[in-house]
């Protein structure tokens, strides 16, 4: 009996250890959804013959899981490439000295605002922070037009919702409001949001599901989540907020090479591949990105005429507001 158990455990160890060695490989840490990133990485494997070993983040760790792994592995990095579904964590890694510069030939046609001036990271495949409304519950004249409507005593109520503004892209949006409105006005806005009983839920996907099912009339979420509800035929409409005023926040993916990664050459090859127009086109087609940085002929989602008006704040300005916004919002919402 004991021999059988021992043999079984040995076999398990063998199975668990397989697939860990290859002559040419690259290690990528990514907070992009596995369902989006995996096929793209498989295509890269097929095209180049380089084995991709990926670690995927999950939403419940609010994109901090892999960043903490990278920070802790700083003295002996295990990853070659970091592909983030937003920009704040990449700026943090740059500040912590974890990234190395690389000017990818694939990024030449990308506008300078989407590239780090020092060459540490490149942004692509943008998403926007939009309002998803349930068309069964609201008539067009009742649709919110601005993010600030979430603090409007007439419009907002517990039928509006957003994810905790302490994590992920909702935190990015909060920091962007701090940068644009100034800390005092932004704090007052969020205090009103809380006072009016706007529902604060666990993530953008929860906001999407609650609006789609009619549990919320309107909610703030990302375009990829919103588009998913549209594609499933839910009674929803996507509103790009503040197009006549401060603009909509666009949050791109960012990609960077890790300093001292074990496979720098294959890392660069992967980075070149991911920044290619074809990959971005694929991401638009599958509905993950709606605001590409390369020109894309066909766009599934209906964008505002003349393009999306961006919020006039830089990534660095948003990053600078993170600590303050995070501290104040915790005091307001975690009670």
């Amino acid at each position: 009996m004991l021999k059988k158990v021992g043999l079984f455990l040995l076999m398990l160890c063998f199975i668990l250890s397989t697939g860990c060695s290859s002559s040419k490989q690259v290690v990528i840490y990514t907070s992009v959804d596995q369902v989006v990133a995996e096929p793209i990485l498989k295509d890269f494997e097929k095209t180049t013959g380089i084995q991709v070993r990926a670690v995927y983040d999950v939403e419940s760790t609010k994109t901090t899981g892999l960043v903490n792994r990278l920070l802790t592995e700083k003295n002996r990095p295990q990853a070659d490439v970091f592909w983030s579904s937003e920009f704040v964590q990449t700026l943090l890694l740059k500040n912590e000295g974890l990234l190395t510069t690389y000017s990818s030939p694939s990024a030449q046609s990308i506008p300078p605002i989407y590239k780090d001036p020092e060459g540490f990271w490149t942004a692509f495949a943008g998403r926007a922070r939009v309002i998803l409304v349930n068309t069964d519950l609201l008539t067009p004249d009742q649709y919110p037009e601005s993010v600030l409507d979430f603090a409007d005593p007439v419009k907002a109520s517990n039928h509006y919702g957003l994810a905790y503004p302490l994590f992920g892209t909702t935190l990015n949006q909060a920091a962007a409001l701090y940068a644009y409105l100034g800390p005092e006005k932004a704090r007052s806005f969020f205090e009103n949001v809380n006072k009016l009983g706007v529902r604060v839920v666990d993530g953008n996907s929860v906001v999407r599901d609650m609006v789609a099912e009619g549990q919320l009339a309107a909610g703030l979420t990302d375009t990829d989540d919103a588009w998913d509800a549209v594609e499933k035929g839910k009674p929803v409409k996507i509103i790009f907020p503040d197009q006549d005023s401060m603009g909509t926040l666009v949050i791109p993916d960012t990609i960077a090479l890790i300093k001292g990664g074990p496979n720098p050459d294959t890392g660069k090859q992967l980075l070149d591949y991911l920044l290619s127009p074809q990959v971005e086109k694929n991401m638009v087609e599958i509905g993950f990105s709606q605001i590409p940085v390369h020109p894309v002929a066909e766009q599934k989602m209906e964008l505002p005429a003349g393009g999306v008006k961006n919020m006039p704040v830089t990534f660095q300005e948003i990053y600078n507001q993170l600590n303050l916004s995070s501290k104040e919002l915790k005091e307001i919402f975690v009670r």
Binding site: D33, V35, Y56, V58, D225
Partner: peptide, 12 residues
């Protein structure tokens, strides 16, 4: 579990 939580976000 990692895969379940990853898919949960995507809405699959």
């Amino acid at each position: 579990t990692l895969k379940i939580y990853n898919y949960l976000h995507y809405g699959s």
